[in-house]
């Protein structure tokens, strides 16, 4: 991938998104924020995946990564849906949307 063609550009962009998303995934404590970050990382990965399949402008975009990405997007949605349900249920039960060990000032004592 010499030069800054479109595919490489978006692949780099994907790498950047992965970095940003991971930070959000690690640093945030609110479960919904983590979910947002998770989706950012996911789409970053898809971008890397898809962009790498679009390197050969002469051949057109590779359909295999596209199909895989669509599958991945659906899986990500499914995961998000389950997590959202978990978070909501947890908020109902525990009154918060963070894990106990992530509560400020909490030593993780049970």
């Amino acid at each position: 991938m010499t030069g800054l063609d479109t595919a490489t550009l978006f692949a780099w962009c994907g790498a950047g998104l992965i970095g940003i998303g991971l930070y959000g995934f690690l640093a945030n404590r609110h479960m919904l924020r983590r979910l947002v970050a998770f989706n950012v990382v996911g789409s970053g990965i898809f971008l890397v995946f898809g962009a790498s399949g679009a390197r050969r402008a002469d051949l057109g975009p590779d359909p295999v990564p596209q199909a895989l990405i669509i599958t991945g997007i659906v899986v990500a949605l499914a995961t998000t849906a389950l997590l959202v349900a978990l978070v909501i249920r947890y908020a109902d039960l525990a009154g918060r949307a963070t894990l106990p060990e992530d509560e400020p000032g909490d030593d993780g004592k049970e």
Binding site: I18, F38, I45, V48, F49, S52, G53, G72, T79, L83
Partner: peptide, 16 residues
Amino acid sequence: LFGSLAYLLGVALLYA
């Protein structure tokens, strides 16, 4: 989820 993401990224790179 982290594991999935890491794995998926690895798969993407391998395919690439």
